[in-house]
Design a protein around this nucleic acid. Structure first.
Lengths: 245, 245
DNA sequence: CGAGCTTTTGAATCGCCTCAAGGCCGGTGG
DNA sequence: CCACCGGCCTTGAGGCGATTCAAAAGCTCG
């Protein structure tokens, strides 16, 4: 049996034992497909399952009663979706497919069993969730304390960093299947202003963008503008319990 | 031995067994004191210990190279500080005492042992960290998609909600030992503008503020303005493993 | 009582928003 | 095969929210 995408993802941070791999793989239920634009679940829905992204992109978003939307996070291959709702019964945000997707389901109750049988995996889950918190810190700082151009630069760099961590390649061309509206809702700007900023950044030879690809032309300057810090490179597992089995 | 403040905090979400309580309490090392304004650690410092707030307020902050500051989180009694840095060796943010404080230290390695011995506690740690992620989602939404007055209203309400969850009391007067600069750095506004907004909100009889207390005069309207959602009331532990010992 | 914070207030400016209209491009149906 | 339609992108004009700079007026503590 070939490794599931979740195993591949977790294995990036830790050398999983065969037992651990089997344990994780056995949690994944049959995959399900969603077409681009579909809603996987909505804010407030009751969550009995978590999802693991097999293929495609999803984004979690939340709407204000004014109709405005904030995009909270992007989910790529190997990401666990819904963990942030595990402390509550209800989903804190909606999940929407940004491209066609394949996701595996993962029963929520199974998580408890995993915590007992595989403390090292529990530690890994905990660590990954902390990495995501740090990612949120960085975005908070970007939204709170930097202007439009820097916010966009930060967004492009952080998406690129995550994609590159998965692919292992360092390509200046990044596939970002988002409209200008989406970008705006992610960084707290209007679509119109995103358009103007992208034009400016193009004139300054920082990036180019067409359709769903963004090319990072001048990464050093993008990093300088946005004070981007790449967090996703390594994980400190020195405090983890030792593996079983 | 009386319950440590960390036990009290965790016990709010789960009925801890005596064994679990002992396990947690034994992790806490001798307390240490910090005066208001002191820095407990700085962005980039090597973290070998986590801290638990015994008394007082701390805030985690991060500085841009422009000198601007973003306050990322507030830490109250019972909060675990530094978990977000556990995935890495280095602290992602600085911690500063907002009042005089007493904190207990908690060796990072001990966390691994706890995960083995007490899977239910591991699940609880995981859940609490997810609650904090959701809190970050809410702040991200506030910073990205609402204007100044709503951001401040949101901040005041969320601090009040957390304080009330600890105290069990519902008092309109909330002690918030922060300057206008601090408030600005938390919600992404300048001190000057925070001042003007507070004056407006005072004129509209939404709040009053002097020194380090804020009085919430009209909570329904504050909630309406800011679309505040109180997340910290309950925890879903239905998926937790059963207790040992 | 003075030093050093915090707060208050004004004036000018800028970043971003809203409203609005038009252009592009791909897909669908006649 | 072309006409049309709906999403997306582009661009302009005007306005508002928030910033910067600046200066003065409390507070608090030694």
């Amino acid at each position: 049996m070939s490794d599931s995408c979740f195993v591949v993802r977790l294995n990036r941070y830790l050398d999983l034992t065969p037992t651990e791999k089997t344990a994780i793989a056995s949690l994944e239920r049959e995959p399900r497909e969603y077409a681009s634009g579909n809603t996987l679940w909505q804010e407030g829905d009751d969550l009995s399952e978590l999802l693991i992204v097999h293929q495609g992109w999803a984004l979690s978003e939340s709407r204000l009663s004014t109709g405005k939307r904030q995009i909270l996070r992007f989910h790529f291959s190997g990401d666990l979706i819904g963990a942030s709702g595990i402390a509550f019964r209800d989903a804190p945000s909606s999940i929407v497919a940004a491209t066609d997707m394949v996701v595996c389901r993962f029963p929520r109750r199974a998580l408890g069993e995993t915590f007992i049988q595989h403390p090292r995996l529990a530690a890994l889950f905990f660590s990954i969730s902390q990495m995501e918190s740090i990612d949120l810190y960085d975005r908070l700082r970007a939204l709170g304390r930097s202007e439009g151009k820097a916010r966009l630069a930060n967004l492009f760099l952080s998406i690129a960093a995550r994609m590159r961590a998965v692919s292992g390649q360092h390509n200046p061309v990044v596939r970002i299947p988002l409209t200008q509206s989406d970008l705006g809702d992610a960084v707290g700007l209007t679509q119109v202003h995103v358009n103007r900023l992208i034009r400016q950044m193009t004139e300054e030879k920082l990036i180019t963008r067409n359709r769903s690809t963004v090319t990072l032309l001048d990464e050093p300057r993008l990093i300088e503008i946005s004070r981007f810090i790449d967090r996703f490179s390594s994980l400190d597992s020195s405090w983890f319990p030792s593996p079983r089995g």
